[in-house]
Design a protein around this nucleic acid. Structure first.
Lengths: 211, 211
DNA sequence: TAGATTGTTAATCGATTAACAATC
DNA sequence: TAGATTGTTAATCGATTAACAATC
């Protein structure tokens, strides 16, 4: 029976992963949950519980096999089988994401970008083609794309979102600062800057006031 | 006694705010928690509880005053008194953020960007100056900057982070995919793409498997 | 063996939801 | 008044933490 994984665990796993990968090649072969927890400022029980979900266990007194753990987390997160994605909205943010080479490491491959502005289309940004929106349908169905990355202005977001869904997209990574209405089986992951800013500035003003 | 606000509430407030602001000028003067909840796919009790924290209440049968609510949320989040910030790392992502005009709406003003690569420095990206890292100290102390936005490669992040803290920065918005070690009174808000991607691809593969 | 470390079971904590009373 | 809506109090749910037993 497939275990239900909470979002909070899911968000911590990449943190472990990137830390483990940042260690030098000649680091010790094993690493303990205690060490990991200390390095990342987390509770060690929590780390152990999280790791228990993805690996088949460490050894008392020794810890987890470092490289095995990396593999286990990557496999668990599905970073080993690459997902193709399309990106809509080739503005500054869109191009920044297009040019971000790090995604492949997480199993994400942006196949092409689309923009409603035909004059932007055709241009290559960091090797990836930028196409007119009219080409979306063909590409999505031909390559069975499941992930759409939305970097369009808020006002255009819902329309593009509907278009994506009509073309078989199952998951949307939404950078537009707006709420999207979607059918229940479609996943929307919001990457709302305003949200983080709120946390940031609130903490800041709280600290200033000294409470 | 200042109320302790949870992060989850803090993250929902900007969502209400942006929805309220997206309504047309001639929308009804009042809006009920019920309506808001339905539009955003949230629980109505939750909406009401959240709004209770920031406003002095709606009226039964009528709802909340729409414009008053906007003001209340903005004021609560501190969007009315602008915070100056510096951005370090004028790569693609850094420039995308620099050029993003929406921040001012959230009370954030990026004063300048810095980059260790002197050849990039001097260039203007969308009107904001890009300066060499050596100019950071002077500007931070002169303008009493409290927020630092980190868009440097992971390997450079901790070093720049330390530099920022030495220069009086109290809050760091970290886009580098790495953990930062900071003293307890410094706030780090991580904007880790890998984290969102993990949630996204996991849900996707779960759905494909049909469980 | 002793001590470090794992993994599990139980307790705590916090956030969400449900039920309901108050109000216009 | 009746019904929509607010706000509050209590119940539920889930995640984190603490305590502890098992293991190398």
């Amino acid at each position: 029976m497939a275990q239900k994984i909470s979002n909070s665990v899911l968000k911590r796993l990449p943190v472990y992963l990137s830390y483990l990968k940042s260690l030098p090649e000649d680091a010790p072969e094993n690493i303990s949950a205690t060490t990991l927890a200390a390095a990342l400022n987390m509770g060690e029980v929590q780390v152990r519980k999280d790791l228990a979900l993805v690996s088949d266990g460490g050894r008392p007194k020794i810890g987890y096999q470092r490289l095995g753990l990396v593999e286990d987390i990557e496999q668990f997160l599905g970073y080993d089988n690459t997902n193709d994605a399309v990106l809509i909205g080739a503005g500054k943010l869109g191009r920044a994401l297009l040019g971000y080479s790090g995604f492949s490491e997480y199993g994400l491959n942006i196949v092409a970008a689309f923009d409603s502005d035909a004059s932007v289309a055709g241009t290559d940004a960091s090797g990836k083609p930028v196409l007119p929106l009219s080409a979306l349908e063909d590409l999505c169905s031909r390559r069975k794309i499941l992930i759409g990355i939305l970097t369009v202005p808020a006002a255009a977001a819902q329309g593009v979102c509907d278009l994506l869904i009509r073309n078989g997209i199952k998951a949307i990574w939404n950078f537009a600062p707006t709420h999207l209405d979607v059918p229940p089986q479609i996943l929307v992951q919001n990457e709302n800057m305003a949200t983080s800013l709120a946390v940031l500035s609130k903490h800041l003003s709280a600290q200033m006031k000294g409470y």
